[in-house]
């Protein structure tokens, strides 16, 4: 049980860590000042959530690893984030499409976790859900605004959706870890979140005048750690460089 719980907590924390990192890459170069502020704010929320999820993961594991140790001293195969969040930023449209696709799932997941039998998880979910509600609203508005904006913005948002949609399915695939979480009353079944997500997606895409790709093919291997994309390793070389170059230092 504690192994599966550790895995589950790493999944939550790695998603927020990796996406928080990706968004922070935008620092200072967003299309408009308000977006700089909003992106930094989102990254800040996600890094804060990472401290909570990975902190709890370390406690559950009970091997003396804290959130920093988990964030900065694991290699690619130990990361449990969804493939979606490790995808490179691309243009601003792709960044916001990735955010929107993830936030829709993240929000539903957190709402489910608020009813978790594990009080610590329920508490983290309750704190995070307020932040993620805002992330989702903002990403939704941006996807609609740019999808239904100019011809160019529409074209770019459709391209972003086409590029990222194959990474949506992984969020809803259940595996042995999920089954254990469901039977222990800790987390909702991922598959159970799909109908609500699809309805949300259809409504937003319609308003954004975007076309959902017909093919439902889903890449997987992120949350299980079986096969990440090549992008994650490059991200870690930057994110973990200092800690690994100076392993004796405290900061």
């Amino acid at each position: 049980m504690s192994d599966a719980l550790f895995e589950f907590l790493c999944r939550m924390g790695d998603n927020t860590l990796v996406l928080g990192h990706r968004i922070s890459e935008w620092c200072g170069v967003a299309p408009v000042l308000e977006e700089d502020i909003a992106l930094a704010n989102t990254a800040l929320d996600l890094i804060g959530q990472t401290q909570l999820w990975l902190g709890l993961a370390g406690e559950v594991e009970d091997k003396g690893r804290d959130a920093d140790r988990l964030a900065f001293h694991r290699d690619v195969w130990d990361f449990r984030n969804l493939l979606l969040v490790e995808q490179p930023n691309g243009d601003f449209g792709r960044t916001m499409m990735r955010q929107f696709l993830f936030d829709g799932w993240h929000l539903a997941q957190l709402k489910g976790l608020m009813g978790s039998d594990n009080d610590q998880i329920a508490a983290i979910a309750e704190k995070s859900v307020k932040e993620v509600t805002y992330h989702h609203e903002r990403a939704t508005d941006t996807v609609i605004g740019l999808g239904d904006g100019t011809e160019e913005s529409h074209k770019r948002m459709q391209a972003a959706l086409d590029r990222l949609y194959p990474y949506v399915g992984e969020m809803f695939i259940s595996d042995a870890v999920d089954e254990e979480m469901v039977s222990a009353g800790i987390a909702p079944d991922p598959a159970s979140l799909r109908p609500g997500y699809d309805a949300m997606l259809d409504a937003v895409l319609t308003e954004a005048t975007l076309q959902k790709p017909a093919d439902d093919f889903a890449h997987k291997g992120g949350k299980s750690g079986a096969r990440h994309t090549e992008h994650l390793g490059h991200m870690l070389t930057q994110m973990q460089w200092l800690q690994r170059a100076y392993p004796d230092a405290t900061w």
């Binding site: 860590l17 922070s24 200072g28 000042l33 930094a40 800040l44 401290q51 990975l54 800690q243």
Partner: peptide, 27 residues
């Protein structure tokens, strides 16, 4: 920009969060 240069290489999650908050304040 000069501080954003280190957000992706900050040494701890807390330092990363503080630096993000600082750069956000500047914006």
């Amino acid at each position: 920009l000069p501080e954003g240069n280190w957000i992706t290489r900050a040494p701890t999650l807390e330092r990363k969060a503080i630096l993000l908050a600082k750069v956000q304040d500047e914006a």
